[in-house]
């Protein structure tokens, strides 16, 4: 399966289509960190929110780069389960690289600062919370991008609609006082947590929520793939 993951990543990088989401991510982060300095946990929480649609889009592009017939050839060669898994894994690897860039970016442009007041979190704690917030986003974004991929929804228009609804829905349903917060991955809640009181139980609960949401959406993706043949 690792050979198929490598092949798909190579295809993604060699077409140059990886540049579009990477540039979009950098522009978004540049805009985010261009307005002033913030402490790591707070800055990274917001960074994770804005990266969610970017990573989902990146996943969709990665999966869509491979021609349909080539995907079927891979399926014949390694079987259905491994073919599906290899696509999700390749997207997760690409997302982790983008996350690494996002974590490094504010330090390069001077967008973060150390603790100012006595009650502020230390830089290592801020980094750890930031890493947690970004890792929380990865499975959710990969799941949404996979659901929006051509292999899942067919036409390009449907894919864009799924991405747009997923991106907007994550913010709208994630607002404080939302009537159906469980409809969205907890990326907004994670951002609020990194900026406020980050109790261990809260972190654990949000992690479980994110994984459950991602698993449900991946289930939808697999069901769509099965329906598409």
């Amino acid at each position: 399966m690792s050979a198929l993951v490598r092949m798909r990543l190579a295809g993604f990088l060699r077409t140059g289509r990886a540049l579009a989401p990477l540039l979009a991510g950098l522009i978004t982060l540049g805009t985010l960190y261009g307005g002033g300095r913030a402490q790591p946990a707070e800055a990274y929480g917001v960074s994770a929110v804005v990266l969610f649609p970017v990573l989902a889009w990146q996943t969709k592009i990665l999966l869509d780069v491979e021609p349909d017939v080539q995907r079927r050839l891979a399926q014949v060669t390694v079987g259905v389960a491994r073919e599906r898994s290899a696509g999700l894994l390749a997207a997760a690897v690409a997302a982790l690289v983008t996350v690494a860039v996002a974590l490094l970016f504010p330090w390069l442009v001077g967008g973060v600062s150390g603790p100012v007041d006595p009650g502020d979190r230390s830089i290592p704690v801020g980094l750890a919370l930031g890493l947690w917030a970004h890792l929380l986003v990865v499975p959710a974004a990969v799941a949404l991008g996979a659901l929006a991929s051509r292999a899942s929804v067919g036409g390009a228009g449907y894919g864009v609609a799924v991405l747009a609804l997923g991106g907007v829905g994550a913010v709208v349903f994630g607002l404080t006082g939302s009537v159906a917060p469980w409809l969205a991955p907890p990326i907004m809640a994670a951002a609020r947590t990194t900026a406020g009181d980050a109790a261990a139980l809260t972190l654990l609960g949000l992690s479980g929520w994110a994984l459950a949401w991602s698993a449900a959406v991946v289930g939808g993706y697999l069901w769509r793939r099965r329906a598409q043949g």
Partner: peptide, 18 residues
């Protein structure tokens, strides 16, 4: 499906590894 960014050798080697 020839619309792939690989040379013949790289593609076939990749498929052989797969």
């Amino acid at each position: 499906p020839a619309d792939q960014p690989f040379t013949v050798t790289r593609y076939l080697t990749g498929m052989a590894r797969v």
